[in-house]
Amino acid sequence: MNKIAALPMYNVSPALAADWHALLADVLRRVEPAAAIVERDDLHAFWRRPDLLLSQTCGYPYVLGLNEYVQLIATPEFDAPGCDGANYSSVIVTRSDAPSDSIEACRGARAAFNAADSNSGYNALRHTVAPYARDGRFFGETRETGSHLGSLHAVADNRADVAAIDCVTMAFARDAYPELTGRLRGIGYTRSSPGLPLIASKHVSREQAGALRAALHEALTTDHERARRLKLKSFANLPPEAYDSIRQMESEARVANYARLA
């Protein structure tokens, strides 16, 4: 049975999607040339497949049960504002002409989020807002957009007032879509947490997992220009418990009686 792979999380533009595809192809050539690069809509099912050789997920679904099916391969270290080593945070954005200059000032505003299972767009924003919520509410309205780019457009087009955007996505968006991001401004950052991990099925052997780590570093160092475009500095090998901080953010919001973004 041939193994499968995909890097779906940071395809912010067609050019970036092509670079991520090329990086993955280089890794697979070094580890298992017969593996197929695929596209899937149902990522939660895809990540749980026993033939998964390499992919990338969000830390929130990882700690909410995906960790039972996969093993950590590496965590990218990005060169982007809001990143610190293998940790990242979310930029809280509003429109350039909006009066709010802090998250506290956004009480009653319309919030956009990409998905409820997103650490950067939902969990981190909920954690940031929780200390200011009253009776489990802070925003006047919330809107699910399906992607960070969707949230950026919702705020820029005045369909929402505030959103939390993965700082790596924001850096990519500033490069690829300056007209869009030029209509927005940041008013703060969320708490940082480990970045989006690269994963493999637990059926992947220890030897092959090690080969994947070595191939990732080799693919990074052999094409410096591609690494620059992808803002990749290195790959960290974090222990699974490093991601417990994401669950802790959820727990702290629940203790503050703010279990959902509202």
Rank of each mutant, 00 (worst) to 15 (best):
I4N: 05
M9C: 06
Y10L: 08
N11A: 13
S13Q: 11
S13A: 11
A18V: 01
W20V: 00
W20T: 04
D26Q: 11
R29G: 14
R30Q: 15
E32R: 12
A34T: 13
D41K: 14
L43M: 12
L43N: 01
F46L: 01
W47Y: 15
P50E: 15
P50Y: 04
D51N: 15
S55Y: 02
T57S: 15
T57A: 13
C58G: 12
L64E: 14
L64K: 15
L66D: 06
E68D: 14
F78A: 01
A80M: 09
G82N: 11
G82W: 05
G85H: 08
S100D: 12
D101W: 01
I103H: 04
G108Y: 08
G108H: 08
F113S: 05
N114P: 03
A115M: 03
D117V: 13
D117I: 13
S118N: 09
S118Y: 08
N119R: 14
G121S: 15
Y122I: 03
N123Q: 11
A124C: 07
R126M: 10
V129F: 06
A133I: 05
R137W: 10
F139L: 07
T145G: 05
G146V: 03
S147M: 09
S147R: 08
G150R: 09
A156G: 11
D161F: 03
A164I: 14
M170G: 03
D175P: 00
D175M: 03
P178E: 06
E179Q: 14
G182L: 00
R185V: 04
G188K: 08
G195V: 01
S201H: 09
S205G: 13
Q208R: 12
Q208Y: 00
Q208K: 12
G210K: 07
E218V: 02
T221F: 02
H224R: 15
E225P: 02
R228A: 12
K233N: 14
F235P: 06
L238K: 07
P240L: 05
E241R: 12
Y243L: 03
S245R: 09
M249A: 12
N257Q: 14
